[in-house]
Design a protein around this nucleic acid. Structure first.
Lengths: 198, 198
DNA sequence: AGAAAGTTGTTGCAAAAACCACAAAAATGA
DNA sequence: TCATTTTTGTGGTTTTTGCAACAACTTTCT
């Protein structure tokens, strides 16, 4: 992946003394941040795995996004009005970079390594985020469980360029990610597998 | 909206003689572009209205995105693998800017007005696109028709800051946009309206 | 090692959504 | 303006999905 290479380059520049940048660690299950109020945070997951989660008022959990190494998140990406409470939860031990900005592109001083690195890579990072989101829309717009599953598996297999896929979720979480009921998903999953094993 | 102001600024710079930029007009119903093959097009809708459409193999139409003045589109935003045929269709008479790039951020020459304008606004444009997509994910991840409708109406009303909303779709298209069956939607819509008019 | 918490596999049943079909109304276009 | 196409409103029926519940199995934690 071109992206991870570029990001690694970027990560080297994390060794900065920019006052607006903080790096924190989180244990599994801890809340990394919430999107409840505008706090002008732009976050980069340096290592670990985390989910962006929403609970609606029925108590339904939806995994809005799943983040891996070098993925970015934060309420920068969300409109102010969102009335649901979104939060990012560590699924494993995570190391996270927080960048608190006034204006995303404003540099703090002439040659701050972090800022010059950010301005170099920002649009690339954003473009990457867009591609991810479009895939998410693609999945969620599928009309039934079966098609959601098939699309998701295809997506995983094209990502890794391999026929054997590794689902980065438990089935319980996968259902929350695809916004469907787990038991119904299990039924369809079984049917899918039975069909292939003739 | 801050965005449209910035974009108007940008539009002024369209009066460019950059060789990589073309402006074309389309009539209602015409196909503006397809996402079938990588053609390295970044498009800006200067005026009119257009939809990004997918037909799946059941013949289901899904309106993946709806574009207004100053919205951007093009397969830049899509992963290469997508096996569905996506295309952008004009809903009204449209004026579209096409930018054919090798590298999105590479300038064609020192002081090309289009390119310098693009590099100024690119990350803002992309950020805007991300916010739009996140709202789209928000909608599509709702578990039932009723909630999709309510969320969509709320979204429209916060966008226009008004209680009376104007749906930019026919009901037929709205159903395709929310990825649901039209007749089922009509039922829920009726129930919603009946409920308010006590 | 053993308890507690979470995941998986599987049901029957209820509810929601999709499908089909058609008439009335509205919009479009020649 | 009139014919044609598209949209809207609405039913009955079938299919899919969601819900509740539970036992077996795994993982995690102390």
């Amino acid at each position: 992946m071109e992206k991870s290479f570029k990001m690694e380059q970027f990560v080297e520049d994390f060794s900065t003394n920019c006052s607006k940048v903080q790096i924190k660690e989180f244990l599994k299950g801890e809340t990394i941040t919430t999107y409840i109020e505008k706090r002008n945070q732009f976050c980069i997951l340096i290592s670990g795995e985390a989910d962006l989660i929403r609970y609606d008022f029925y108590g339904h959990k939806t995994i809005i996004g799943h983040f891996n190494e070098f993925d970015t998140f934060g309420e920068v990406f969300y409109p102010a009005n969102t009335n649901n409470e979104l939060f990012v939860e560590a699924k494993k031990k995570c190391k996270v970079l927080f960048y608190i900005y006034d204006n995303l592109e404003q540099k703090c001083r002439k040659n701050c390594t972090f800022h010059s690195s950010l301005s170099t890579y920002l649009s690339e990072i954003l473009l990457d985020e867009i591609v991810n989101l479009n895939m998410r829309v693609e999945l969620l717009s599928k009309r039934n469980i079966r098609d959601k599953l098939i699309s998701y598996f295809n997506l995983l297999s094209t990502k890794t360029l391999s026929k054997t896929i590794i689902i980065p979720f438990s089935y319980t979480d996968l259902a929350d990610y695809l916004s469907i009921d787990r038991s119904a998903m299990m039924r369809d999953l079984k049917a899918l597998i039975d069909q292939r094993h003739y």
